[in-house]
Structures are given as C-alpha cells and as structure tokens.
C-alpha cells in the first residue's frame, strides 16, 4: 500500500516537474478527444436522423382513376405480402388534403379551407403509403410497383435518405482520418513527455534500481503520469463539449421551429438531447484518454528504462 501511494505521489510529482511538456501533452490529447467527441456526436445525430427518416419516409403510390375500391384492396394485399414490407397505409383524398393544409398553412389552414368552399383539390389523390422494414429494400419495391399497371405515379424520398447516408459515411471517413492524425500526434507527445521525465529522473532510477526497487516501483510513476495526462486530456474537452453541445441543441431547436412548423420535419431534425448522448461521450472520452495515457507511457517507459 505504501509503495502504491508512493508511486501515485511520484506520478503527480513528475507531472508538475515536467509541466511544460505535460501541458503540451494534455492540450493535444484534449484536442484529439474534443474532436473525437464532436465527430461522435455528429455521427450519432446523423445516424439518428437517417433512422427517423427511414421510419418516416415511405413510398407513396397513386392509383389510376378508374380503380375500384375492391381493386385497391386486392392491390394492398399484394403489396403487403411482399417480403420486407413493414406497413401499407391507405391515405384517402380527404386525409391528404387535411395533411397538406396543416403542413403548409399551419394555423391558417381553416381560412384556406373556406377559400376552397369545401372542395378538395386533391380529389382522386388517394394513395398508399408503404413503409419498408429496411430502407435498403426501397429501390426493389419501387421497381416492383412501377411494373404494376394499376399504378399511376410513385413518389419516394430515396434521394434524401441516400444523401444522408453518404454524408454519414463521409463524416465517418473524415473523422477517422482527423482523429487518426491527432492520435498519432498525441501518442508522440505523451511518449516524448514520458521520455523527458525518464531522462530527468535517470539518476533517481539508477539509485532505485541498485537499492532493490522492483520494475513496478520504477515504472509506475511514469505510467501514473501518462494516466494523469490522459485523464486531464479527456476531462477538459468533455466539460467543453457538454456546454457546447447543450447550446447547439437549444439553438438548433429554435432554428428548426422557426423554419418549419411541420411535426415530421421537426422530429427528424431534432438533435439527440445532451442528457442522452453525454454519458456515451463521457465513457468513450475517458476510456480513450486513460487508455492512451496508460498504454503509451507503459510502452515508452519499457523502452527507456532497462530495469
């Protein structure tokens, strides 16, 4: 126990004795973890948007005008039987008109309705909304529907989903490259800090070795120093990210509300709340920082101290 406490104390002592290098290392690790968490938040939110879009965006199918109710029913059954279909919802012409008014005119929908004297400009626009279990199957479904003679028109929002997926993949790729570079710089700086500490304490280590200190006793203070760098390098950006993310979500919410009153759009564009995403970022950032400090200092000190 005495040895353990001694090693911890020496680790802190190393950290402060070597302060310029320690601060440089903490700053780099902080930058690395800050960007890592920002990209993590971005990727998580984009994924959430894609997921919401997948569940909200379906294929809208319009029928030929001559179709009877029983034919529509038979068509619905045929579509529902297809593999991968989650739900087939019938939207009547009245429902379509109501939804249109709400989406585009919001509170003034009743005035608009009066202006049309109860006529429905979307008559004969009843449709099926088809939701796939997996968005990847949407294209196959569209191909199938377009061959059906009963169908007049097909609308589907694969462009939005595909674009979101592309952005998501791009962000993953970009973040991997940037984080990779930052990790390399962080590893180099931590390693450098530990090397300098080892050089500064060469005499002390020599004496320790000859007195009969174990490898653990000689190396531990340096590993503790590495872990301190990693922990501080994680905690500082995490505090910043908590504050920044909270502000950004609040701002986004106000912006989205100002742009559109549509419930679906708002739902899709809503960012994951800080209380939901922060525990993941906290765990990931801390584990990353501590592990990076631990592993890099351990490897470096093994190289520098022949015990």
């Amino acid at each position: 126990m005495n040895t353990f406490i001694y090693c911890i104390k020496q680790g802190f002592r190393n950290f402060f004795r070597n302060s310029i290098f320690s601060i440089a290392s903490v700053a780099t690790v902080s930058a690395c973890i800050f960007l890592f968490c920002m990209f993590l938040a971005l990727a998580e939110n984009l994924q959430s948007i894609v997921r919401k879009a997948e569940t909200n965006v379906g294929i809208t199918v319009f029928f030929k005008e001559s179709m009877t109710e029983s034919e529509k029913k038979a068509l619905r059954e045929r579509i529902s039987e297809r593999e991968g279909v989650g739900e087939v919802r019938y939207i009547s012409a009245d429902e379509a008109w109501e939804s249109f008014q709400k989406e585009y005119f919001g509170d003034r929908a009743s005035e608009l309705s009066d202006a049309f004297n109860g006529d429905n400009p979307l008559a004969d626009s009843d449709s099926f909304e088809i939701f796939m279990k997996n968005i990847e199957d949407q294209d196959g479904m569209v191909a199938f529907l377009s061959e059906l003679p009963e169908i007049r028109d097909i609308n589907y929002a694969n462009t939005v989903v595909n674009a979101l997926k592309k952005v998501n993949r791009g962000i993953y790729g970009l973040s991997a490259i940037i984080i990779g570079i930052l990790f390399a710089v962080s590893i180099f700086l931590i390693s450098n800090t530990i090397s300098v500490a080892a050089a500064m304490r060469r005499r002390e280590n020599e004496i320790m070795r000859l007195i009969g200190a174990t490898n653990y006793m000689i190396r531990s203070p340096f590993v503790v120093e590495g872990v301190i760098i990693g922990t501080l390098g994680a905690l500082i950006p995490l505090a910043g990210i908590y504050y920044t993310y909270k502000r950004v979500t609040e701002w986004m919410l106000s912006q989205v509300s100002a742009i559109s009153s549509s419930g679906a759009f708002k739902e899709i564009m809503d960012l994951i709340p800080v209380s939901e995403i922060f525990p993941t970022m906290l765990c990931a950032g801390l584990i990353l920082g501590v592990l990076m400090g631990f592993i890099v200092s351990r490897i470096t000190i093994r190289k520098h101290l022949k015990v």
């Binding site: 005499r203 002390e204 004496i207 007195i211 009969g212 200190a213």
Partner: peptide, 24 residues
Amino acid sequence: FRLLNDRNVYENIAFAQRVIGASN
C-alpha cells in the same frame, strides 16, 4: 555520492526505505 538534489538529507536516506515499501 548520487544523492537526489531536490530532496533533503532525511528524504535521501528515507528514499531507500520507501523503495522497498517500508511503513512511515
């Protein structure tokens, strides 16, 4: 001599005991 220049006489002597995990 190889003394630790940042520690006083007491700490230099005690150092050998700390290394082997002796109690305070």
